[in-house]
Amino acid sequence: MGDCHYLYGNVATEKRIKFMKQLLEFVGIEGERLRRKWVSSAEAPEFVEEITDFVNTLKALGPSPLKREQKPDQPSAKVAVA
């Protein structure tokens, strides 16, 4: 922490993600759909591993509840939740 290219970027992110996970849970969207992991640009294998794991988690959770709320004429929901 604090060792971020964007100075305090990771500190701010850490706080926001902590907060956001709980807010999502409260409005009925599983907190596991939001994930934060620190990976440097030189750590490709870690990145791949993390994303694979995230995809598996999401597959286990099933489609996002927001999908059902989507209108058919909208190509994708513009939300920051996977």
Binding site: E25, F26, V27, G28, I29, E30, P65, E69
Partner: peptide, 15 residues
Amino acid sequence: RMEALGVKERFTQWM
């Protein structure tokens, strides 16, 4: 009251 509900129920109610 809201916190006592399950995650799915909360979603339905909020939406």
